[in-house]
């Protein structure tokens, strides 16, 4: 996993609520056996017509928006547990998704992929979506060590929450496997004392 520290970029607005992982990456693309290459089919059915031509009105096809932050409506990533959704966003160049809340499994998958799920209030989300649509060049600055999202044009900085352990993992590019494998003796001791053996 790549390290994540700070991000100076612009946002791409997708102001729909309850965006499910079937939209992020439809099931028919889950037949790959590696993690790479999902980006070209990110939001496939919203992004392309049936003949493969791009839909002009979809945000990823709008040349005005170029940043690596997706700003999306609340309850982002609901539905299927497919980690391919986080891989597709990452593969397409996104490093952060801002929403006013995330589905639990997607949040965990994003953190395990190096993609930061950044939760703001409904009010801040609405302001961001409106401001980005008005000015696609609106600068956004994510600083993970200080857990802040800054909007320099507004002169405002917002704090966001992230679990302390997962923050360290993201900053250093660590994942949970090494940590868990190092718990081997504690896990074996646990197995010996557990009450159920059937």
């Amino acid at each position: 996993m790549e390290k994540f520290q700070t991000l100076h970029t612009t946002g791409r607005p997708l102001p729909l609520e309850n965006i499910d992982t079937d939209q992020i990456i439809p099931a028919r693309f889950l037949k790959a056996t590696t993690r790479e290459g999902f980006g070209e089919n990110l939001f496939c059915d919203w992004r392309y017509n049936a003949d493969g031509s791009p839909k002009a009105d979809f945000v990823l096809n709008d040349a005005r928006y170029t940043g690596s932050i997706l700003v999306a409506g609340k309850n982002f990533g609901c539905g299927s547990s497919r980690e391919h959704a986080a891989w597709a966003l990452y593969d397409a160049g996104f490093r952060t998704v801002i929403s006013s809340y995330f589905a639990d499994i997607f949040r965990g998958n994003a953190l395990n992929t190096g993609l930061l799920p950044l939760q703001v209030s409904d009010e801040v989300l609405a302001r961001l979506l409106a401001a980005i649509e008005e000015n696609p060049q609106l600068e956004l600055v994510v600083d993970l060590p200080s857990q802040t999202l800054a909007v320099p044009a507004w002169g405002e900085t917002f704090s966001f929450a992230i679990d302390g352990y997962k923050k360290e993992c993201l900053i250093n590019g660590y994942d949970d496997i090494d940590f868990l494998v190092n718990q081997k003796s504690a896990i074996e001791a646990f197995e010996k004392q557990r009450a159920w053996t059937w």
């Binding site: 499994i105 965990g108 998958n109 994942d175 940590f179 868990l180 718990q183 896990i187």
Partner: peptide, 19 residues
Amino acid sequence: GIGTSQVAQVMASQCLLLS
């Protein structure tokens, strides 16, 4: 349900790190 990174974690340790 879990993601694929967690599938690998359980394969490696029979555990998950969870809140």
